[in-house]
Design a protein around this nucleic acid. Structure first.
Lengths: 157, 157
DNA sequence: ACGATATCGTTCTAAAAAGGAACTGTCAAA
DNA sequence: TTTGACAGTTCCTTTTTAGAACGATATCGT
């Protein structure tokens, strides 16, 4: 398994890691969900090197997670905006935040709370089974080969 | 924001990225959930360099995600086993797999299916609001400062 | 007209991380 | 005695990342 051909692996986790598994990628994504859109703003908020930022934005555009949209001519200026594919990364971001809220906070407590506009309450994200609606626990899940499985099923998904 | 002090950031995403955001970390974690426990087995399945593998395992132990358990003396041999803290990473892993299943599969389809032992059916993971039970969409969530917020609320969580 | 500022990158060099292969130490089995 | 399993470590090369400066293009203030 080579890092630079991860997207060709027959494993959905490996392929997603090819998109978000780089150093800085998840932090750039965090900014996207906070509605940051411009190069300078990403750069100054994250302190990432400009070179890496350019790389990561290019990679996200290549994988269809961000759209590069011109917002002015002369000089041409672009914004980076989440596509639907990018918005679909939200559960990943929220589950990461939630693990941090649970296991990595200090005595001051959570830095941010999340309010669900629909019900008006501060919430935690909960992952459930699409079929029965029960919360998912690692021990209660059995994996088996799907149609796109390699000969020996050697991947989590 | 420096990569090597990420765990001290006042942001739950950044702190979690300090644990799982390295190259290879998520792939090692995948193997853990597939019940891989020994150095050689991780190494041969992933093709990761031995040096990096040793580093990543050490880091997971340091952050309490894995437990290093001696399973024989003379010579001392160890296994790496998920702690509860590690098992709690399951929603992150599943949401990553699910995004890959949705957006990165080729014509062959999903490599792996997941069966929920409780209801017996193959499922997708769905993220819902802990308060009202509705599925979570990025656009329907409002973030606001929590008790551990930095002066200007500049983090997703 | 002139300099300052804004924006989105690219270029350059040094430092850090990752890749790759061989090696160590201990024990069991053939 | 030799081979092999296991869990790393050591050494060296290649790739990535960090850090700072530079370029191109345009607007704004004076």
């Amino acid at each position: 398994m080579k890092w630079d051909t991860l997207e060709e692996e027959q494993c959905s986790l490996a392929r997603t890691v090819a998109v978000i598994g780089d150093r800085w990628s998840l932090l750039v994504l965090r900014e996207c969900f906070l509605r940051i859109r411009r190069f300078e703003e990403f750069q100054s908020r994250l302190g990432i090197t400009r070179h890496l930022l350019a790389d990561r934005l290019k990679k996200f555009v290549k994988f269809g997670v961000l759209r590069r949209v011109k917002y002015q001519d002369r000089p041409a200026r672009y914004e980076y905006i989440l596509t639907q594919r990018g918005l679909d990364l939200y559960p990943i971001v929220m589950s990461i935040v939630h693990w941090g809220d649970t296991h990595m906070v200090d005595e001051r407590g959570r830095p941010l709370l999340h309010q669900h506009k629909k019900c008006g309450k501060d919430f935690d994200p909960v992952m459930i089974c699409s079929e029965c609606g029960e919360p998912l626990l690692a021990r209660e899940v059995h994996t088996h080969a799907g149609p796109g499985a390699p000969k020996p099923a050697a991947a989590i998904g």
